[in-house]
Structure formats: C-alpha cells, structure tokens
Design a protein around this nucleic acid. Structure first.
Length: 462
RNA sequence: GCUCCCAUCGUCUAGCGGUUAGGACGCUGGCCUCUCACGCCGGAAACAGGGGUUCGAGUCCCCUUGGGAGUACCA
C-alpha cells in the first residue's frame, strides 16, 4: 500500500506557523515513504471561506517547497458525494432528521450546563417518525450509545472514548450542505488517504469519524495527531504573537530552509542533531520520532537557524530577495553579490543584509552621533590626513593596499588600527558597524571613498 | 463543569529500568579582533509533587498539581 497523505486547510484565514508544520510533517511522511501528498481545501463553510486565503495558503506552501501531487481538491465541489453518503446513512437507519430549532438547542445546552453536565444533544428527534414538509431540518448521525471507540493513534497510542460521551452530531445542515466530520470522512476515503496527519486539536473528532467510517462501510485511515504549537507565552498561537502568517516570515527576511528546519525540530527529533537539509529531513523523518508534548514557538532559535542558512547560502541566490528589500538602486554601485557576501556572516536575516548593504549605494547623509563622539578626537584628523595622502599617492586600489596603508599610518603614529579604522568606517558608512574596513573600502572604490572622507571631514570638523 | 491529551535545563529536545541525566538555542566568563559578527574554549541551568511496583525509576502504575484541546447547523 503506498502512503498517501493530505493537508486539508480551511481557507478562512492565513497559513500560520502551526498549519505550516502540520503540512510539513504530512509532506515529509509521504515523501519519506515515497508516497503522495495531496491538498484539499476545506471550503464547506461558504460564509467564511475566501479565494484570497486559498491563494495565500498555496503561496505559503510553495515558498516552503512543500509541493503537492495533482491539483488541489476543493471540498465544496464534492457536495454531491457528501449528500449521497448522508442519504445512504439515512436509508440504513444510521442517521435521522432533526427538526430542533437553534433556540431549542441553545436552551437545552444551557440547561445541561446549569446542571453541571456536558452539553450534548439528547436525541429528542431520534425516534420521530413524522416528516413535516414545511419545516427545516438537519440530519444527525445516530451515534452508538454503548461501548467505546478506540483511536489507534501513531503518535499518542491508543485513546479510548466512551460512546456514551459522543452525541448525535449534525452531518447535514438545514441548507443541505455537509458538515466537517462527514465531509472529511467521505473525502479522505474517496481520495484514498492512508494516513491522516493533523493537529491534536482534532483528536476529539476522531472517534466520531471512525464511527462514520464504520457506518458507511468504509476503511478508516491511520491517524497521527501531532502536538500543537503554542506562542512564546505558552498560550495558543494567535495573531497577538508576532508574525503568525507564514508569508510574514518571508517578508521579514527568513529563508524557507531555515523555517522548515526549525518547524521540523518542533516536535520531531533525530538524536542530538539540529541542522537538517530538506533531503536529510525526507530521509530521516518518521512519525515514531514525533513527541507528544506541545512546543512553544522560540523566535531566537529560528533566528539562529536562519543565520546559519544565511551564512551557507550562495550570494548570487540572495541577490533578488535583497534587491527587493533594499529600496535603492544597486545597479550603480559595487556588485551586489559581493556586498551580500561581505554581510552574510554578520546578519541573521535578509532584512539585516539589506540594511547593511544600503550605504554601499547611498552616501551617508548623517553620522551617528554616539559613534562620532566615541571615535573622533583631535588626534583623529592627522591620521585621516595621512591616510588621504597615502590614498592619493597610491597606484592601485585594493583591499590589501588599503589595509597596508592603514597599518602604516597607525604604526607611524604609534596607535592601534582601530583609531583610524573606526573613523574611516563612520565616514564612509555613517555608523560604527560595517564589514571589515579594508573590504568595505575596496568595495566602495577609491573615488567614492575619497569623496565620502572629504565630505565627512568637512561635515564633522567644521 | 464534563471528555480527551500532555509534563526532562528559560526554550526545543536526547533518554525507551542501572547515565557524572546528553545536545542545541538563549544567557554568561574568556580567546580571536579595525567595528559588528563568525569561530574556538569554559560556566550556570532540568527529571512538577506524592504514593506505589522493582534489588534498582527521569524511564512502569495510581493520585495531586499544572498546562493544552474539544464540548457549534466552524474546520
């Protein structure tokens, strides 16, 4: 039997970090077992589903590289099948029409709660035999009253539910549309899904779904409920916890391989290893190494991984993304790939790379006050003058030459390199932080360096 | 409230009856150094509590406590 998994998001919101990890685990499981990974958009809630959300979900998955097999299935398009299943259940006595009004149900639940009981449909329409034509009705599944339903979960192990705890759930709304639990069962079966990998928030639905599989005479898939991801404060992930939509990580300069690696390690592990390429993930991932405990989202660790992958990246591969974030024309100044290379090991994301690259293409308009105060004193000016003289006299311009010149000037004046390097850095970049000074000067080019130093001296000394 | 799930450093985790309880992020001391980083060396830091079972329990069982999920004509 070839493995076939699915990711089934509802297009009612963005693809967030938790959904992305569910998709990743599901995808990894399929790829590891040389199976298939398919997509189903669960848009049966017509009120809240939007095309925009669907697009964002698909974009997010594409960005992460979680490719799916075949075309996405839109659940709403499968309504005829769902209704047919409901009719079958109705005919076989596994379901019945319920004419209770919402008000009636609300009151019932309210009363039960007041009695300290679990709110459950009490089955008052179960034995109704009349079928008033003019009254709206829903169809409910006739759930067994006795015995227990066992979920054999690949992550959590066996979980037993007392059937008496499960009430008769609605499978068809009064408007004739199917509800979630019915639709998943019918579709997972129709799509030949072998393994349902989803968030553990679905665990409580699973016994109901198993009962539906049985009633419909269908084979239930294997289930794997993976633990949820919580926000940094331990509470449920929500919009309050920073960038939740996966697309926001892209905008914030994160690399997809870093996000995948981080997400994979949230709940899954392979001994003491931390860094996994996509290929390694596919090779090593399995459900057996998935833990049961919910994890908190830790931005600091994601940052570390992102910095790691950023350092490994080929500069040319980052040019387009950085150019996007730069907001200045990089075609006139130094080669952007070389500038990126100089910034990779001192940045933790692409936004920082872009920020660090900007001065290469736009001369500073101001000099950071604090840095100027710290690094400029009366003795600085003679050093700069001598450096300038040296540059003018230089035949060729290179990083090595600049380095040697700085060294010579400093030695002659009996000061360490920082006394000259820092003022130079501030003059050419506007601040106290940049790639190594010799490399920075080489990248900028002799003319631009001279221009900036003169302008800086003029601005700061006068 | 009721049902279900979970519980090792601050965080992510290794551990699958006998370990000086390991790694990683973060934090921190030092080295390197023209800045910021990178890198290297070192440090602090955990088995939620209580009962069992066992020669022996972080590992198995029960209870407590603490988190979480579900409890819709949402998915």
């Amino acid at each position: 039997m070839t493995v076939r998994t699915r990711f089934a998001p509802s297009p009612t919101g963005m693809l967030h970090i938790g959904g992305a990890r569910t998709a990743l685990f599901s995808w990894l499981y399929a790829r590891h077992h040389h199976g298939e990974f398919v997509l189903r958009i669960e848009d049966t809630d017509r009120e809240r589903s939007t095309d925009e959300a669907t697009r964002v979900i698909l974009d997010g998955l594409s960005w992460l590289g979680l490719d799916w097999d075949g075309e996405p299935v839109f659940q709403a398009s499968r309504q005829a099948d769902h209704v047919r299943a409901v009719e079958q259940l109705l005919e076989q006595g596994h379901a019945y029409r319920c004419y209770c009004s919402r008000e009636e149900l609300d009151k019932m639940r309210e009363d039960q709660r007041a009695d300290g009981k679990k709110p459950m449909y009490d089955g008052r329409c179960r034995h109704r035999t009349d079928h008033p034509e003019d009254q709206p009705y829903v169809v409910r599944f006739r759930s067994p009253d006795t015995g227990e339903t066992i979920v054999r979960d690949m992550v959590l192990g066996d979980v037993a539910f007392n059937n008496a705890e499960l009430d008769d759930l609605i499978i068809l709304r009064s408007d004739g549309t199917p509800t979630y639990n019915l639709a998943v069962v019918v579709d997972d079966s129709a799509m030949a899904i072998t393994h349902v990998v989803r968030g553990s928030d679905h665990l409580n639905n699973t016994p109901r779904q198993i009962q539906l599989y049985e009633a419909l005479g269908l084979q239930a898939p294997c289930f794997a409920h993976i633990p949820l991801i919580h926000g940094p404060d331990g509470a449920k992930m929500s919009k309050r916890h920073g960038a939740v939509a996966i697309t926001e990580y892209r905008q914030a300069g994160y690399l997809p391989e870093a996000v995948n690696n981080y997400l994979a390690r949230l709940g899954w592990s392979h001994g003491d290893d931390e860094v996994f390429s996509r290929e390694q993930l596919i090779e090593l991932f399995d459900l057996e190494q998935v833990g049961k405990t919910a994890a908190r989202f830790d931005q600091a660790k994601l940052d570390w991984l992102n910095a790691h992958y950023l350092r490994q990246a080929k500069p040319e591969d980052l040019v387009d993304e950085v150019q996007q974030l730069l907001n200045v024309d990089a075609s006139q100044g130094p080669d952007l790939a070389r500038v990126i290379a100089s910034l990779q090991e001192r940045s933790k994301n692409l936004v920082e790379v872009a920020d660090g690259a900007r001065f290469f293409y736009a001369a500073p308009e101001a000099y950071q006050e604090k840095a100027v105060k710290k690094n400029f004193r009366d003795t600085t000016w003679p050093l700069l003058e001598r450096f300038l003289e040296g540059v003018e006299a230089m035949a060729d311009w290179s990083g090595e030459a600049a380095h040697t010149l700085i060294q010579q000037v400093c030695e002659a004046e009996g000061v360490n390199m920082g006394k000259l390097a820092q003022p130079l850095r501030i003059l050419v970049s506007g601040g106290p932080i940049s790639p190594p000074i010799d490399l920075t000067l080489a990248l900028l080019g002799r003319d631009e360096v001279l221009r900036r130093i003169h302008a800086g001296i003029k601005a700061l000394r006068d």
